[in-house]
């Protein structure tokens, strides 16, 4: 009876730790900022990148910019999922709190995974807000859209990008220019995941990389949901996207634990 109660309280402690870590890491990411700067960092770059690609497309001779508009909106969660999560992990080292974290008895899984909760929700909300704005500005037709499926796809994309964020955050712990790698990958997504054009237009060897990345299948599924597809039509894409996301999150966590173990042996993590 006693051990059952102790087990229950351990689970409660883990859940509490998960949410507290999630909240504090999210506050640390954005609370120092002003609302205007926060808003600009959320929508500014994405909006103007979208405009840039729209005009590049128009100059190239594409008549309909909606493919680019929806693609760039669906890419928005990646800003939170990749940059937000990787920064939340990497800043532990930058601000000198990583040693305390590794020295604490707190469970690593809730501490590590908690860093994704609010960026995932934030990324989902960002894209969900941007859709109606696109409806007004670019006359995006949502009349046939399978709304719940579309929202589900956006939430899934937000989650799967956080898996990549975990990996990049862990890399940032052992590489001082980790944020440069993160930024480069984010820029590369404009080509690789079907944001501005279908991935079928890429050379075959690049397409292999595309399908190994999160978002590619998620964006395809979201586009189908936008056009009114139902679950059977997108199920394979959705399940594939979920699988890729889980694999990336597990890889990120494993990498984090390996780095932790290595740092305990060498004691040189802060020198890197």
């Amino acid at each position: 009876m006693k051990s059952k109660a102790a087990g229950g309280s351990a689970i409660l402690r883990t859940i509490r730790l998960y949410f507290i870590q999630a909240w504090f890491s999210y506050r640390a990411l954005y609370l120092w900022n002003t609302p205007l700067n926060y808003f600009i960092s959320k929508f500014g770059y994405s909006f103007f990148a979208m405009l840039m690609f729209m005009f590049i497309g128009k100059f190239a001779g594409l008549a309909d910019p909606l493919y680019i508009v929806t693609g760039n909106i669906l890419l928005m969660p990646s800003m939170n999922g990749i940059s937000g999560v990787s920064t939340a992990v990497a800043d532990e080292k930058r601000f000198g709190t990583l040693s305390y974290l590794f020295g604490s008895p707190a469970g690593r899984a809730p501490v590590f995974m908690g860093r994704a909760l609010f960026p995932v929700l934030d990324g989902f909300l960002t894209a969900a807000v941007a859709m109606p704005v696109a409806l007004l500005l670019f006359h995006l037709d949502l009349s046939k859209t399978n709304l719940w499926l579309l929202l589900g796809c956006i939430l899934l994309i937000s989650f799967t990008t956080s898996g990549l964020g975990f990996i990049l955050g862990s890399i940032s712990l052992v590489n001082r220019d980790g944020w440069m790698i993160t930024s480069s990958i984010e820029v590369g997504l404009f080509i690789l995941v079907g944001v501005n054009f279908p991935v079928d237009l890429l050379p075959p060897f690049v397409r292999v990389i595309s399908y190994g990345l999160p978002m590619t299948r998620g964006i395809q599924a979201a586009r189908l949901a936008l056009a009114g597809a139902n679950w059977p039509a997108v199920s394979q894409l959705v399940l594939g996207e979920a699988l890729v996301g889980v694999i990336y999150a597990l890889l990120g966590y494993t990498l984090f634990r390996l780095i932790e173990r290595r740092s305990l042996v060498s004691g040189a993590l802060d020198d890197l």
């Binding site: 190239a60 001779g61 501005n196």
Partner: peptide
């Protein structure tokens, strides 16, 4: 890298438009 990506998008879109 960033200019390369923007240029590549421009080239692929041009090809998609039939140029």
């Amino acid at each position: 890298l960033q200019p390369l990506v923007f240029s590549a998008v421009g080239m692929i879109l041009a090809r998609a438009a039939g140029n």
